[in-house]
Amino acid sequence: MKAYLFSGQGSQFVGMGKIFYEKYFLARKIFNIANKILNIDFTKIMFNGSKDILKKTINSQLAIYIYSFVETQLCKNFFPDMVAGLSLGEFSALTAVNVISFEDGLKLVKERGLLMQQACDTIPGKMVAIFGLKDKIIERVCKEDKGIVVPSNYNSCNQLVISGEYNSVNRVCLILKKLGANRILRIPVYGAFHSPIMELIEEKFVNIINKISFNNPICPIYQNYLGIPIINPNDIKKNLIKQLVSPVKWKHSIKNMIINGAKFFTEIGPGRTLENMAIKMLKTFSK
Results as ranks from 00 to 15, higher is better:
residue 68 S to P: 01
residue 272 R to G: 04
residue 55 K to Q: 11
residue 7 S to W: 01
residue 183 R to L: 14
residue 66 I to E: 02
residue 232 N to A: 13
residue 267 E to K: 04
residue 216 N to P: 00
residue 174 L to T: 15
residue 39 N to A: 12
residue 188 P to T: 05
residue 42 F to V: 08
residue 156 S to P: 08
residue 183 R to M: 15
residue 167 N to E: 15
residue 205 F to D: 03
residue 27 A to N: 00
residue 107 K to S: 04
residue 230 I to P: 09
residue 131 F to E: 06
residue 32 N to K: 14
residue 70 V to C: 04
residue 265 F to L: 04
residue 194 H to K: 08
residue 286 S to T: 10
residue 24 Y to Q: 03
residue 161 V to L: 11
residue 130 I to W: 06
residue 181 A to N: 11
residue 262 A to T: 07
residue 273 T to I: 00
residue 1 M to Y: 02
residue 119 A to Y: 08
residue 134 K to Y: 10
residue 35 N to P: 11
residue 64 I to H: 03
residue 178 K to E: 15
residue 63 A to K: 00
residue 35 N to R: 11
residue 56 K to I: 07
residue 126 K to P: 02
residue 249 K to S: 00
residue 40 I to N: 02
residue 185 L to F: 08
residue 74 L to K: 07
residue 199 E to F: 13
residue 135 D to I: 01
residue 61 Q to C: 09
residue 71 E to T: 00
residue 193 F to D: 02
residue 148 I to V: 14
residue 165 E to D: 15
residue 191 G to W: 00
residue 217 P to A: 11
residue 36 K to C: 08
residue 111 E to N: 14
residue 141 V to P: 03
residue 119 A to L: 07
residue 54 L to D: 07
residue 32 N to R: 14
residue 98 N to Q: 13
residue 74 L to S: 07
residue 123 I to W: 00
residue 136 K to M: 00
residue 178 K to D: 15
residue 260 N to G: 08
residue 9 Q to N: 10
residue 4 Y to R: 04
residue 166 Y to D: 10
residue 273 T to G: 00
residue 104 D to V: 09
residue 279 I to Q: 06
residue 233 P to S: 11
residue 283 K to H: 13
residue 4 Y to C: 04
residue 78 F to E: 07
residue 103 E to L: 01
residue 279 I to N: 09
residue 88 L to W: 06
residue 240 L to A: 11
residue 61 Q to E: 12
residue 279 I to A: 06
residue 267 E to H: 06
residue 273 T to N: 07
residue 119 A to T: 07
residue 48 N to H: 13
residue 67 Y to S: 04
residue 75 C to A: 06
residue 28 R to M: 06
residue 280 K to G: 01
residue 204 K to M: 10
residue 194 H to M: 08
residue 239 N to F: 15
residue 77 N to M: 04
residue 72 T to G: 00
residue 249 K to C: 12
residue 157 C to I: 15
residue 193 F to H: 04
residue 108 L to S: 02
residue 42 F to L: 10
residue 57 T to H: 03
residue 143 K to R: 15
residue 91 F to L: 13
residue 179 L to F: 13
